[in-house]
Simulated assay, not measured.
Amino acid sequence: MPPVPPAHRPRRPTERPEPRTTSPAADGAVAAAAWARVAALAGSEVVAAAPARWGFTNRTWLATLADGRRVAVQLLAGREVARRRLRVGARLAERLAAAGVPTAPLLGGDADAAAPFALHAFVAGRNGAEALAADAGAVRLARLMGGLAPRLAAVDTRGLRLPSTWADPARLAGAARRWLERAGPRLDGATSRALRAAVAGVEPLFAGRRPVFAHGDFAPVNVLLAPVPGRRAETAAALLDLEFARPADPLLDVAWWGWIVRFHHPSRWPVAWPAFLAAAGGPDASAAFADRVRTLQLLRLLELLDRAGRRAADTWAARLAVTARW
């Protein structure tokens, strides 16, 4: 996470409020009423805010309160996502903590606001994607996030009422057939054939495998890194953006992390992927492992295409076409 600009530093109680060089209401997506709601939930006026440099599906603002505290205000992509995040957030955070996975504490939120949002305690750190600037950083990040994967899989999902489509191979195959039918006009012939083969292989590939907790968007951009005191090393300060959490095959988070790095950071993938797999429990050279990873990547992309709005759909279709040719 970037350092706070001087005009946005928390003031001491004896100082006068600083000028708002970036107004919390400056973003057209954020109404003044929403910021008033943030202040009510936080128990202190918002005196300044600036957008975080990270955030794709959800945009995040880092806000300074009149009492000197800082909070993260995340604008959520739709009311359904917001309701699920707020309903599950507190209980899920407790279970993640019990499994050794740190998160940013949820302070509240409003799914019915003009711009639905979640309010989180501020967690200092830099975004994990920044570590991918060089091979050495990519390997360190891969080992750190690979080590988180088994902890995530150990999280207890009972009573959380998470989406269950990915927990059952037959149900997943049925959903994927519907996604593929709706996506048809956007896909070229080679991509359609690859997807039909992937869908046909879901039940034989995944039958009998016990579902576990999955983050659902396990990616470098969704972890904050903080220095380890007294050492030249970093640790995971917080895992972010859990609105896609679900029970799924144990390889879903592994497969998605691999896709994100290979697609968006291809020069780092050759060194990062083996390091990630080793930290996640050891590399698996079997054909079944490779087939499962590929199938999960294609189906997750197909699901995202199915959920995408008109503007984003062509982007996801293009990503599917590239991935189908790997």
Score class of each variant (00 low, 15 high):
2 P>V: 07
9 R>G: 08
16 R>Y: 02
17 P>E: 06
28 G>N: 00
31 A>S: 13
32 A>N: 04
41 L>P: 04
41 L>S: 03
42 A>G: 09
45 E>K: 11
50 A>T: 06
53 R>P: 09
53 R>F: 03
60 T>E: 02
68 G>M: 08
72 A>Y: 06
74 Q>V: 15
77 A>P: 06
77 A>K: 14
77 A>Q: 14
81 V>F: 14
97 A>V: 15
100 G>W: 08
105 P>F: 01
106 L>V: 11
106 L>W: 13
109 G>K: 08
111 A>F: 05
114 A>S: 13
117 F>L: 08
125 G>Q: 08
128 G>Q: 06
130 E>F: 10
135 D>N: 10
139 V>K: 09
139 V>P: 03
141 L>T: 02
148 L>M: 14
149 A>E: 05
150 P>D: 08
154 A>I: 05
154 A>P: 06
154 A>K: 02
155 V>Y: 03
158 R>E: 14
165 T>E: 14
170 A>Y: 06
170 A>T: 12
173 A>G: 10
176 A>R: 07
177 R>N: 07
180 L>R: 12
185 P>D: 01
193 R>V: 11
194 A>N: 01
222 N>L: 12
224 L>I: 02
227 P>K: 02
230 G>Q: 12
235 T>P: 01
246 R>L: 13
246 R>H: 13
247 P>Q: 04
251 L>Q: 08
251 L>E: 04
253 D>K: 07
259 W>K: 03
262 R>L: 12
263 F>P: 00
266 P>F: 10
266 P>W: 07
267 S>Q: 14
278 A>M: 09
280 A>M: 04
285 A>F: 10
296 L>K: 12
296 L>Y: 12
296 L>A: 11
296 L>W: 10
301 L>K: 02
302 L>N: 00
304 L>E: 10
309 G>D: 15
312 A>S: 13
313 A>D: 12
315 T>R: 15
318 A>D: 10
322 V>Y: 12
324 A>K: 04
325 R>A: 14
